[in-house]
Design a binder for these strands. Sequence first.
DNA 1: CCTTGTTATCGCATCATCGCGTTAACTCTA
DNA 2: TAGAGTTAACGCGATGATGCGATAACAAGG
Lengths: 239, 239
Amino acid sequence: MPEPDIGDYPAPHVAVDVAVLTVLPTDELAVLLHRRTGDRSGQWALPGRFVRPRERLADAVAIALQEKCGLHTRELRGRAPHQLHLFDDPDRDDRGWVMSAAHLLGLPCSLLQDVIRSRDDLQLAPIADERARVSGQRRLPYGQDEIVRYAVVDIRERYRKEPDPEGLLEDRQFTLAELLAVHVAVLDEDWQVDTFRRHMLPMLADTGEVSTGRPGRPAAIYRRIAAAARHGNTTAERR
Amino acid sequence: MPEPDIGDYPAPHVAVDVAVLTVLPTDELAVLLHRRTGDRSGQWALPGRFVRPRERLADAVAIALQEKCGLHTRELRGRAPHQLHLFDDPDRDDRGWVMSAAHLLGLPCSLLQDVIRSRDDLQLAPIADERARVSGQRRLPYGQDEIVRYAVVDIRERYRKEPDPEGLLEDRQFTLAELLAVHVAVLDEDWQVDTFRRHMLPMLADTGEVSTGRPGRPAAIYRRIAAAARHGNTTAERR
DNA sequence: CCTTGTTATCGCATCATCGCGTTAACTCTA
DNA sequence: TAGAGTTAACGCGATGATGCGATAACAAGG
């Protein structure tokens, strides 16, 4: 799109907003919310921040999560935020013309709870009807309910097709029951075990290890096969 | 994402790029390319342009198509560009820090050909292997091959699921054979007629009219049922 | 060693989908 | 009016997917 007059126009500020999704120990999908530090009456919102000069969106997401939520390399390494949508309502922010690049990032609850435990400016809000359920607050500001909805629809679509694409399991090696529990939590619907097994096994590698320590046949331990290593998609992804 | 210091940072320029996809009379998927007017040796590129102050992305897309390609209300009315991805490589444009909001818009070929016929700065490039095939030009500039790929993957996914979601058919009323031809062209693979009929009929309304003028049983004429009017998705969209 | 409990596998009935040959419906033309 | 041609519908065999009861495998504990 060659166009010489780049300097002639003001530019929009671009912010990143992040729907950090996780699965609570109660097997509910939840989203991370943040409010202004020290402001107990402040509004809960998705974490985010403006993009700095020449900064990549993914880097802005990571820095936003570091600055606002105390999530650092330990939690974020090896994870890439998934871009959802660019929200462009020029009136969405009182301070000026801001576009919001909405993202989704999945994190295991165990990584979040350490961080959240010691702070009152963070919470995990359960998802109900594709929205964050926040006690005492009807809606998220800046149209962020829409971002949550995009994130929930997106993550559910992906969890129908492949095993734990957002890495919500704490461990990279897991049993089929653990995988199923996460999928059921994300999708908010049950899967029959045999059907689930048939869908997922082609995308999983048996580690050869088993889970012991309790009565019963030990469950096999699996890890995900990288998508690139798989040949073709499952039939569910074709017509 | 409340943050007080909006004025403190330079902002990226945001451009829109549009992959206008159509189906050629040869039943091939093609993308609209533009080059600088009067420059026969200029590079072919996707149409696009910078977003003006407080302009909506969809409006920027429409204006870009008007200014660069001569597509006006007649062609664009009732059509919404589909957002694909925000490309954020700060080095993607020599003129400065530019982000590109990539879009997809489907248009019937008949609407494009009137416009293109009289100009040498527009062409419809066939798609092969998810790329635009341009004679004498190996790649599109500004990483636009990636935009084309996103657009092709996206449109194919949607054409697997619902009838003519991008309105590539010239008419809003059509026969099943016409619909099938468009789907086969987009997906670049065949569908057995009965299977196609079973998939699409639940999302189509029989107009009661038939197509006459040639030997044989007249084909029924359908129109799409608006998605909102349909109750639930087809089973293909569930597991 | 036996019982309990859990996971994995299996066999199979049922249901859904697909593709194709056949039949029915309905136009156009000679 | 009959034949040709095209679309729509049907019947059905083959295939695939699902769910579930039964069985096998294998641990922990008494």
